[in-house]
């Protein structure tokens, strides 16, 4: 089991993710209005909140798919997207940003599998193209990963020949193939039929048990309560409240949290 309390022992370990006053605007619309949080290694953090509160945007900032306007964001001690030199921030080159992203896996709401590649080809693409892993070795490891997510008999299927739940499990295997230190999930089960949600959550539960650090945007309160170490409630670009999932869910301190939970529970 990972630590039951959300905040890790102070000063002991470097946080996997650290955000300080993260702001993000699209044009004149401020979507993130100062986000501060820390995710410890092996921690599972679940983020919940109403639609449009900036959950996806924050997740995308963590692997620099979005560029933040103010504040600082570190992953594993490295500033995301910038280098600090002589008291100034310097933008990283495309290749350096790409290198940072290798250690961060991301799973999308709409799977975003490569439709022109089989399940196995999806999984081995990045190891071969990015890490230069030999093809035979990548295939062996890819097959093992697909077996781990319960798709040993679907390796040669194209995404359009798979159910939504199977596609999402391939997407998880694809992210895991890069051996990331951190996994980001953006509503991984929201596009699935209800009876397919369980199989994806099972895989994620297994990852958590194996000690993967995970940030999960989700509406699955049951998963947050069972698997999450921390629950963060976001609304309108700020963190309203965070803490142990059980206490946040059963005894929310803020009115906004209460009203949100009353709608989704």
């Amino acid at each position: 089991m990972s630590s039951a309390v959300g905040t890790p022992a102070p000063g002991a370990v470097q946080p996997m993710v650290k955000a300080e006053g993260v702001h993000k605007s699209f044009g004149h619309v401020e979507v993130l209005k100062g986000i501060d949080l820390e995710v410890a290694p092996r921690e599972v953090m679940c983020i919940v909140g109403p639609s449009g509160s900036g959950k996806s945007t924050f997740l995308r900032c963590i692997n620099h798919l979005e560029r933040i306007n103010a504040g600082r964001l570190w992953v594993n001690g490295h500033l995301v997207g910038y280098r600090e030199k002589g008291g100034r921030l310097h933008e990283l080159r495309d290749s350096e940003v790409a290198a940072q992203r290798r250690d961060i896996g991301m799973v999308f709401q709409r799977f975003n599998l490569f439709p022109h590649m089989t399940a196995l080809e999806n999984v081995i693409e990045a190891p071969i193209q990015v890490k230069g892993v030999r093809r035979a070795e990548a295939r062996e490891r890819g097959a093992a990963l697909l077996e781990r997510v319960g798709l040993a008999d679907r390796v040669h299927n194209y995404p359009n020949q798979l159910s939504g739940g199977q596609q999402q499990r391939v997407a998880i295997a694809r992210a895991l193939a890069m051996e990331p230190q951190l996994m980001l999930f953006d509503e991984p089960t929201s596009a699935l039929d209800p009876e397919l949600v369980g199989e994806v959550l099972d895989v994620m539960r297994g990852l958590a048990t194996d000690g993967m650090t995970m940030v999960v945007v989700t509406h699955e309160m049951g998963f947050a309560r069972e698997v999450g170490d921390t629950l963060v409630f976001m609304d309108d670009g700020v963190i309203v409240e965070s803490g142990d999932p059980r206490s946040v869910l059963t005894d929310p301190q803020h009115e906004r949290t209460r009203s949100f939970l009353s709608k989704v529970l």
Binding site: A98, A99, R101, F108, E125, Q129, V130
Partner: peptide, 19 residues
């Protein structure tokens, strides 16, 4: 979303375009 998925895997722009 295809480009984002490729970028999230750490693929370069050129590789994303070609592959």
């Amino acid at each position: 979303g295809q480009v984002e998925a490729a970028q999230a895997l750490g693929m370069s722009r050129g590789k994303t375009m070609r592959r």
